[in-house]
Design a protein around this nucleic acid. Structure first.
Length: 584
DNA sequence: TTAGGGTTAG
């Protein structure tokens, strides 16, 4: 198709570029033709080639082509920045920016949105500060789009107050700026702040749209606020906001994250349009809520309906197998992925982590270890963490220690792993080793996350820490707790002081065990909620064994369902039994 | 001829 020696006209080359836009080999040949064509319009052809290369993601080649250009204009620099952002190559962006400065090319209003986003991706805080200064120097700070990117950058760096300050001082914020801020709050785990700004937005009479609704539903899912979530959606409906499949998927997810599989299923059946995200959300949600049978049934139904699963769907399927201890099924699904010709279904690290979790939970620790060794990619902290978790469950001190040593190399500052290791030692009664881990954590300044639980009541979320006495109803809560403890002790409840899953916090005296955040939250729920309604408790960390036993007894004593979401999964307590069947 | 916002997983 490509003539070898005859020089081609610009039009022909341009046409060729259009038709070979996604064929790397062809692009290379055309590139050579452009260079030897002797045409005076090389830059416009190279621009076209550059765009094609960015499209197919060959950023190295794109950079090479860019470097061959004669004095590229700013928009070309911007095009390359855009490519780096798209393909998440922030470091290359910074290098390019430096080159731009060296060559005295003035960035324009379009440059900074890309560059600031690149810095967000890079995640190096001092860099963010420096780039903000550059933006100010070039006078682009007041530009809405740049300011929005800056706000998002600060938020992603965890600089909440700076982000808020910047956002507040933005003049003439439009809907997109509000949505961006609310979305980034949710993405960074600051859902309560997102809620606050949603109310502010309403107070400022800014009309929200479907983007706002999605972020809010997502925030409510994170917070476990079923009431607020329903309220936001109803309001959106009343105001005539278009509730497309993305909104409905977000609503599905909100229901599932609040532990209401009934609401989710009802909606799922009613939905006019369902895509792979809808199905995956349901499967993942069922797995999270401990209904593995339903998750797998849905997966089969999905295939019968000819919906192609994606890698998230398989994460849900594998996690369903893991929570139900279905080792053989898990292996079978994993091999379906491994054998698939679909490049998108190749098992990723997360799938390997799921398999390690599945094997490990079922006590097949050696097999899990072997599985890791045979992985085609370098195991990361998540993989070792899964094995360490399994070692904790099965009190495998020796392997646990080995894994912990490896983990310290991969992820030295993740407190959760240190806590797991110390739990392993504690369960084995090796208190001297426990002390060693603890003092190491202190020395390294490893932060442990403070545990808290929350309950939503009348559109407000009530938070509790361990031994919390700040709630207005403190007196009543503690009295209720004492009353229940007395009653369930008579039913046979014994505090589980030597729990495997005890967090650093549970290491305190037994008296503090009885004041764990989830117990306070349950007591609060018993005082305030309507009889017959389930009590929904959300916990930011994994729940401890004692609270698990406690909740079982309370559900039997009071005939109320307790739905507790911890960091990993749900526990639905009913009449003394937990849906997790002790498998967590 | 370019720029800011949304759903599943982590």
């Amino acid at each position: 198709m490509l003539a070898k020696q005859t020089p081609l006209s610009k039009q022909m080359l341009s046409k060729l570029l259009q038709t070979s836009s996604s064929k790397p080999k062809q692009l290379k040949k055309i590139h050579a033709l452009v260079l030897t064509s002797g045409l005076s319009v090389k830059n416009s052809l190279l621009t076209q080639l550059l765009e094609n290369l960015i499209l197919i993601g060959d950023m190295c080649y794109a950079r090479q082509v860019f470097d061959e250009m004669h004095k590229p204009r700013v928009f070309l620099w911007n095009t390359l920045f855009k490519g780096y952002v798209k393909h998440k190559l922030p470091f290359e962006s910074v290098v390019l920016y430096q080159k731009m400065r060296d060559l005295d090319v003035r960035p324009d209003e379009f440059t900074y949105p890309f560059v600031v986003k690149a810095i967000s991706q890079l995640g190096v805080w001092p860099c963010g500060f420096t780039f903000h200064a550059h933006v100010v120097k070039h006078g682009f700070e007041t530009l809405g789009i740049v300011a929005t990117e800056l706000v998002m950058m600060y938020m992603k760096f965890g600089e909440l107050s700076s982000a808020q300050f910047l956002f507040e001082s933005m003049q003439g914020k439009d809907l997109v700026a509000w949505n961006a801020f609310i979305a980034v709050c949710v993405q960074t785990g600051n859902s309560a702040l997102a809620l606050e700004y949603y109310y502010k937005m309403c107070a400022d009479a800014v009309q929200f749209d479907s983007f706002t609704v999605v972020s809010m539903l997502s925030a409510c899912g994170q917070l476990g606020s079923l009431e607020i979530g329903k309220e936001v959606y109803d309001r959106a409906r009343k105001e005539g906001i278009d509730c497309n499949v993305i909104v409905e998927n977000a609503r599905l997810d909100m229901y599932l994250k609040c532990g209401s599989t009934e609401d989710a299923r009802f909606l799922f059946e009613e939905m006019e349009q369902r895509n792979v995200v809808s199905w995956s959300t349901m499967i993942v949600g069922y797995a999270m809520n401990g209904d593995s049978d339903e998750a797998l049934a849905l997966f089969n139904m999905m295939q019968r309906e000819g919906i192609r699963p994606n890698y998230v769907t398989f994460l849900g399927v594998l996690s369903a197998c893991s929570h139900a201890g279905l080792v053989d099924e898990g292996k079978r699904y994993f091999s379906i992925m491994a054998r698939s010709n679909d490049k998108n279904l190749e098992p990723r690290k997360e799938h390997y982590a799921c398999m390690v979790d599945l094997l490990g939970r079922s006590g097949l620790l050696e097999e899990a270890y072997e599985f890791i060794k045979k992985m085609p990619m370098e195991p990361d902290a998540g993989i070792w963490g899964a094995l360490l978790g399994a070692c904790a469950v099965h009190r495998e001190t020796k392997l646990g220690q080995e894994v912990a040593d490896l983990l310290v190399e991969t992820a030295p500052d993740i407190g959760a792993y240190q806590v797991l290791l110390s739990n392993i030692y504690a369960a084995a009664g090796k208190w001297d080793c426990v002390d060693k881990v603890r003092s190491k954590m202190r020395k390294l300044g490893t932060k442990k996350v403070t545990a808290y639980s929350s309950v939503e009541f009348e559109g407000k979320i009530h938070f509790f820490n361990r031994g919390d006495k700040s709630h207005p109803q403190t007196k009543a809560i503690y009295e209720k707790l004492e009353e229940i403890l007395k009653k369930i002790r008579n039913m046979g409840y014994v505090p589980q002081t030597g729990s495997v899953f005890h967090d650093v916090e549970t290491e305190e005296k037994e008296s503090s065990l009885s004041h764990h955040s989830e117990k306070l939250a349950i007591a609060f729920g018993l005082i305030n909620g309507r009889a017959g309604d389930p009590i929904r408790v959300m916990k930011n960390l994994r729940t401890c064994e004692d609270c698990h036993v406690f909740a079982k007894f309370v559900s039997r004593l009071t005939s109320r369902d307790i739905i507790m979401r911890d960091k990993n999964r749900f526990h639905h307590f009913r009449n003394g039994v937990c849906s997790c069947r002790e498998f967590w």
